[in-house]
């Protein structure tokens, strides 16, 4: 078993929350989440608020420095993510394919270190 981070990265400003398509994608994602919990692959998941609401803390110096986020200034930002458990990459990719279909965005699949049993 390997744990994978499934991240959804998209252009926040291109997203129209009120459109019927976006509302449908939220409903589909919710249904997908229920499935994932039922199949035992679910570890954690969540959708994030707009990157404008993020704050960066740099605690590497004596005094932590706090600044307005996001950390990386790009149009495409993390929108939400899943943490799943899968037998191998093929299973993770199959799940990610369904996740991507439900949320209407490409999904990046990345393994966690150290949780392979």
């Amino acid at each position: 078993m390997t744990h994978y981070l499934l991240s959804v990265i998209h252009d926040w400003d291109a997203l129209d929350f009120d459109s019927p398509e976006t509302q449908q994608s939220f409903a589909d994602t919710e249904a997908f989440n229920k499935d994932l919990q039922g199949s035992g692959h679910w570890l954690f998941a969540g959708g994030l608020l707009h990157p404008d609401s993020s704050t960066v803390v740099d605690g590497t110096k004596a005094e932590p420095i706090i600044s307005d986020g996001p950390y990386v200034e790009t149009k495409e930002q993390l929108g939400g993510f899943w943490v799943i458990e899968a037998a191998d990459l093929d299973e993770a990719l199959a799940i990610a394919g369904r996740a991507s279909g439900a949320c209407r965005h490409p999904v990046e699949v990345r393994p966690f270190q150290g949780v392979v049993d």
């Binding site: 390997t2 191998d88 990459l89 093929d90 993770a92 990345r110 393994p111």
Partner: peptide, 14 residues
């Protein structure tokens, strides 16, 4: 190794 790419023949569907 890291992404755990399987060592098997894919499912009939894939």
């Amino acid at each position: 190794k890291n992404a755990n790419i399987p060592y098997r023949v894919p499912s009939a569907e894939d």
